[in-house]
Nucleic acid binder design. Sequence first.
DNA 1: GATGAATGAGTATTCATTCAT
DNA 2: TATGAATGAATACTCATTCAT
Lengths: 211, 211, 211, 211
Amino acid sequence: MGIRERKEREKERRRQQIIVAAKRVFSEKGFNKATMEDIAKEAELSPGTLYLYFKNKEELYASLSLRILQYLHIRVAHVNKEQGLNALEKLDALMDAMYDVYDFDPLIIINMFHLQSSETLKNLSDELLYEIKDLSRKSIGAISTIFKDGIETGHFQDRHPTALADIFWSLFSGVVLWEASKKIIDKEKDYLKDTLKTAFDLFRNGVVAHP
Amino acid sequence: MGIRERKEREKERRRQQIIVAAKRVFSEKGFNKATMEDIAKEAELSPGTLYLYFKNKEELYASLSLRILQYLHIRVAHVNKEQGLNALEKLDALMDAMYDVYDFDPLIIINMFHLQSSETLKNLSDELLYEIKDLSRKSIGAISTIFKDGIETGHFQDRHPTALADIFWSLFSGVVLWEASKKIIDKEKDYLKDTLKTAFDLFRNGVVAHP
Amino acid sequence: MGIRERKEREKERRRQQIIVAAKRVFSEKGFNKATMEDIAKEAELSPGTLYLYFKNKEELYASLSLRILQYLHIRVAHVNKEQGLNALEKLDALMDAMYDVYDFDPLIIINMFHLQSSETLKNLSDELLYEIKDLSRKSIGAISTIFKDGIETGHFQDRHPTALADIFWSLFSGVVLWEASKKIIDKEKDYLKDTLKTAFDLFRNGVVAHP
Amino acid sequence: MGIRERKEREKERRRQQIIVAAKRVFSEKGFNKATMEDIAKEAELSPGTLYLYFKNKEELYASLSLRILQYLHIRVAHVNKEQGLNALEKLDALMDAMYDVYDFDPLIIINMFHLQSSETLKNLSDELLYEIKDLSRKSIGAISTIFKDGIETGHFQDRHPTALADIFWSLFSGVVLWEASKKIIDKEKDYLKDTLKTAFDLFRNGVVAHP
DNA sequence: GATGAATGAGTATTCATTCAT
DNA sequence: TATGAATGAATACTCATTCAT
């Protein structure tokens, strides 16, 4: 391993260290109330150092989402490539993947959806926005492919595959966000998994072709 | 009309004047980038006057959501009371109501999610928070009733009515949010109505009882 | 009683009504934390009305002191005019007068001393400052006269009468203020009367001529 | 000198730099009219920097008083420890110390009274408030000891030592305050030292035991 | 005179970001 | 690279004062 490579690896380690700290702080305080100093302290670094790895606060925040999107994309792509599953089985596998995505980091996924619905998105650098856009598109594309195949094989109703993918994705994020805010407002217990199951079930019912 | 009554009306007019200005400014700049001075200028008032009608920036912001919640509640309650409609027809009427809610104020779902983030909720007065909770609960309750009736009459599958109501609402807001972020990310055209139609269609398929 | 006179009397009544309210509010909250609206509410008047009777907040505050100074002056002048008392007896009567001044309104007298030591004094109108100056001078003058007489009759040591008057006055205000701040800092019991008695006693000891 | 130590010293230098600037600005404009920006400019620093060294405006203000209290305490304790002085000589030394306290910072008594007004005290941190209380108590305690000793040796009349200490301090601060307000009101010349001398003289006369 | 709604200047404080070391 | 002290722009909110009614 060359010096260059070792340095590269070291650098990546630091980025992760910061991202992990940022995740904790953002989750606890939200974007606005979290300060760069909070994050620096959590990461046991100085504020200045953060700026060696991230252009600004917004990009650091967005990087968290990027991580989830990457994970999501890997999972979805994997489902897609799975041999020996028909479309219906792939849909089920996709649903399982979404549970895992949620389990991977429930708080950060809520952050991600908030990010997507927010003013922050407008202030990102073109590169980062491009990465997010690219990963979103790829993930939605992979989901669409599942539907496209299912429509072709007659498992699913004949609808626009991308629209289905969008709706699938919307349903997931809608449920996650709505349950999250119910928890804030009502301090209700956490029924997300149940609701998600029902939601996906309905979706499945709605989309499969009835013989 | 007595003096007291005229004053009351005048006061309400001012509130609306401010709310309208706030909506414009918040929509354009987002919560954080919008300043109270911006809003005051838009409303052609002085900053101090805003505080005569709203306790602080957060309550002004929350008032926007309150308006849509009130509208939503009225529409949903109305569907519910409609005589001579069976559960399936009520579901269709409910979907129409949601389109209208969206038309009434397309940005509002995004506002509502910002509002529902804990950061913002913590700073609201108890009264306002109560009103929001109350209206949310009532609206979801009214939607649940439609499902409950439908389940009893055998039009809908036997599922938990509140879960259905949550999913219905999640689907709606999820689609709105996702389309909004697609617009930011991709600058795509606005297909929301189509997507929403498909989404509701799927939901209907998914939830109705198959004979 | 003519109309003019009745109006004049009515006006004076309002001034007193405001002063009484202001006293309560200033005493409770201090100059800075007390708002004109607080005072208006306490006086059951509107904020605007206050400005018909007092030029601004500072002058209203200073008017409270003026009232005490007027009372003080009357008492001191009265002691001075008392026939049939020698200088020592007059000094004792003066000390009694000071107790009464303090009893007349302990909180306002503390305010008065704060006023005198403060930035507010610099911002008063010339007329009001003149009135305060005039009353102070007259009071101190009257006290000086007592000492002057006492020195001439050999009751008191031969010192500068005005200096004695200043010291007498300083001792009184110093003790009042110091006890007041001890109460804030230590939440001690109220020993002011005892301390004042000892202080005056020492003063008496210090100033009388020993045969 | 280690790096740590050098930094500590540097930090203390900055604190002093700010305190000096604050004293100038507060003296000229009074607490309310002085702005943090004024002070920052006077210190040739940015407003933000002030907050690295002082929690808020009130604590910065209180720090000025703390300085004089520390000086006062040192001087009084020193008098107290002096060997070979009898009580009367110690009282004289104490009076000299008070002159020096006044010379150290003539405006400080006025500052201290503003500080002691409850408005200000309420906003101080517990630590600072404790320091102030502690130093006040210690100083008064040290003065009391002088009187206590003098009473035991028969130099002073048999009175409550703490009351004597309170009166001694009240007399001092009362005279300083009164002379200060006379300067504002009458723009008179500065006779303070003379008045103070007479005042202390009277006090001495009043308190010593006559054979 | 009395009102009280509206004003808008005034400011303490925060915190993302920089840069000399 | 890493630091962290210093920056200074940015802003919500207050409240003495005014003035149309």
